[in-house]
Simulated scan of single mutants.
Amino acid sequence: MKRTILLAGVAVVSGCVSAEQLDKIYGSQTTPTAAERAAAVAYIKTTFYDPYSIRDASISNALTLLDTGYRSICVRFNAKNRMGGYVGMTSTSLRFQGAAVVSSLQDAPGCNTARLTYSSFPELENL
């Protein structure tokens, strides 16, 4: 029987994700491309409530999700909610196919691991 396991906010279908597979996924980290960074900004601008209030933004390295053809990038930031208050740091996983965002998952558990490397994301703070 196959199980769906969430990793960096992306469903990976397999019988079981072993420690070796996790090592392979986290070992595949590469710096996001300029096209992926631009697609992340465009996606957040069109789907988040108040993207212009974003501060303290950071972006993770991109992970290759086994043999699925997808890449995953996590974005962390602090932004205002619908009531106008800052909610604290949240993480969102963006799943890419090529340079296009195809889905996202807010508060993705795989975004909060020490194995994932983050860097500043000024493009998102300067909307």
Rank of each mutant, 00 (worst) to 15 (best):
S14Q: 11
R71C: 00
L66Y: 06
D50G: 01
L22Y: 07
E36H: 05
E125D: 12
R3Q: 14
G85Y: 11
S60A: 13
F77Y: 14
G88V: 06
S18M: 05
N126L: 12
M1D: 13
K45P: 05
V75W: 02
V102W: 07
S72R: 07
G84L: 08
E125T: 10
S93W: 03
P32W: 01
A39Y: 03
S72K: 00
S58M: 11
T113E: 12
V41N: 01
Q29T: 02
S103N: 14
Y70N: 11
V75P: 00
Y86H: 06
T113D: 08
A11M: 07
S72V: 10
C74F: 04
A108K: 05
L22R: 13
G9T: 07
S119C: 08
D56S: 15
A11N: 14
R3I: 15
V75N: 00
T68N: 04
V101Y: 07
L22T: 07
S28M: 02
D67T: 15
E20F: 10
T4V: 15
K80M: 13
G98H: 13
S91T: 11
L105G: 09
F48H: 08
C74W: 00
G85M: 12
M1W: 08
F77L: 09
T113P: 05
A11R: 09
T31Q: 13
T92I: 15
